[in-house]
């Protein structure tokens, strides 16, 4: 579904990605893990069209979408849930969702949009209660739900999630991850960037470990969970084994 080949991204003269290649199969959850500043978010932002300087190929169903502006990429069915939610804070929950379906208002029927909003409310019932509330007044977890809901309103086939559990209470993070699994069951392909490497690897089929803009380890997530290097560096245990 998504195939990235030798992707290099730059912020001005700073090179953030040094030739990333990865593959996300249809209906899969693929996760990118790595330390802060490794370039995980840059990968998602480049795919979504927010990074203007890049080289290489980003193939979506075989067609190169690299270099297209963000608003055209949403049209192709790729939706990014950005880091830090990036909601329209002074607008209501309902408005945020309506704007999520911005491109579909012209041709999509009203009933269809309402149905999708109901689908989002089905995933996150709390949003339905808060429909008239301003997005900025929601709790962190609710904001994350709204951010995911807004992205879903564009009916994406590929969902890019940037640190959905960031800053959330463990219980809330669990709920977000359960939703991710449910979305996958509904046929959405997901590329997930996470700090919480263990949780991410547990829901994902494939994992990539990113370090300083490069892929250093890749493979089925079950293998990554058992890999000693990955365990030590990102899963936060296994120190004893090394010391012994």
């Amino acid at each position: 579904m998504l195939r990235i080949q030798n992707l290099k991204s730059y912020y001005g003269r700073l090179q953030a990605l040094r030739g990333i290649s990865l593959h996300v199969g249809k209906g899969e959850i693929v996760t990118l893990i790595g330390a802060n500043g490794a370039g995980k978010s840059t990968i998602l932002n480049t795919v979504a069209g927010l990074v203007s300087q890049s080289e290489g190929k980003i193939l979506l169903d075989g067609k190169d979408i690299r270099g297209l502006p963000a608003e055209k990429i949403v049209k192709r069915g790729v939706a990014l849930v950005p880091e830090g939610r990036q909601l329209f804070a002074p607008m209501t929950v309902a408005d945020n969702l309506a704007l999520g379906a911005y491109l579909r208002h012209r041709n999509g029927s009203k009933a269809e949009l309402e149905q999708d909003a109901e689908m989002v409310f089905g995933l996150f019932p709390v949003l339905k209660e808060r429909r008239k509330q301003l997005a900025g007044t929601l709790s962190g977890g609710e904001q994350q739900m709204l951010a995911i809901g807004r992205a879903l309103m564009s009916r994406p086939c590929l969902l890019l999630l940037d640190e959905p559990s960031m800053g959330l209470a463990p219980k809330m993070a669990d709920e977000i991850f359960r939703t991710i699994v449910r979305l996958k069951q509904q046929g959405v392909t997901i590329l997930l960037v996470e700090q919480n490497a263990r949780m991410a690897l547990e829901v994902a089929e494939q994992g990539y470990v990113i370090e300083t803009g490069q892929v250093v380890v890749q493979g089925p997530s079950a293998d990554l969970l058992r890999n000693h290097d990955v365990e030590r560096a990102y899963l936060g245990k296994g120190y004893e084994k090394v010391w012994e």
């Binding site: 979504a48 963000a70 002074p90 911005y102 564009s154």
Partner: peptide, 15 residues
């Protein structure tokens, strides 16, 4: 208004 508030987020929903 979305553009005014958050330009990148506006682009991400296709504006």
């Amino acid at each position: 208004r979305a553009c005014a508030h958050n330009r990148d987020a506006a682009r991400l929903v296709g504006i």
